[in-house]
């Protein structure tokens, strides 16, 4: 489709100083494309939380973003340890993050709930020892 814009980012492992750069970059692109601030915020927050998760839990990974006038899809793929219990991970307050992460103001078990809160569709595919794919879509109404 001609009006699909595709972006690709790599998230580095264990580097908190750059966590948020990919979501920041996408935010800028969406602003230039003229999306409403409401839509931009939803995408930016969902991506940012996911990016932080990739740094915390999964030694980084890759993000593919597809932008059309109708929707923005973000696919986050990592080769991390996988999520043992997705239902538990979706509960607000449940976290397996360590002290280092908490000192940064994260790791309070709000990551996945926040991603769900800000997106219209969210699918998690995970396999223990192989990795996780978080596929999120925000529709432009």
């Amino acid at each position: 489709m001609a009006d699909t814009m595709k972006l690709h980012y790599t998230v580095d492992a264990d580097d908190f100083t750059v966590a948020g750069e990919a979501s920041g970059a996408v935010k800028k692109v969406l602003k230039q494309l003229g999306f409403s601030s409401d839509i931009i915020r939803k995408v930016a927050v969902a991506m940012y939380e996911c990016e932080i998760n990739m740094v915390i839990h999964a030694d980084g990974g890759v993000i593919d973003v597809e932008i059309t006038p109708e929707k923005i899809r973000m696919i986050h793929s990592d080769k991390g340890p996988g999520i043992k219990d997705i239902e538990k991970a979706m509960q607000e307050g449940f976290s397996t993050a360590d002290e280092k992460v908490r000192e940064l103001g994260f790791g309070a078990g709000m990551g996945l709930p926040n991603m769900k809160r800000y997106t219209d569709e969210m699918n998690i595919t995970t396999k223990i020892g192989e990795g996780t794919v978080v596929d999120m879509t925000v529709y432009v109404k």
Partner: peptide
């Protein structure tokens, strides 16, 4: 910061005792 991401509305001022780049 996750609660900031969850609950903040437009044009807010953030007060925090956490100091880092995030």
């Amino acid at each position: 910061m996750s609660d900031v991401l969850a609950f903040v509305k437009d044009q807010a001022l953030l007060l925090t005792g956490l100091v880092n780049g995030q």
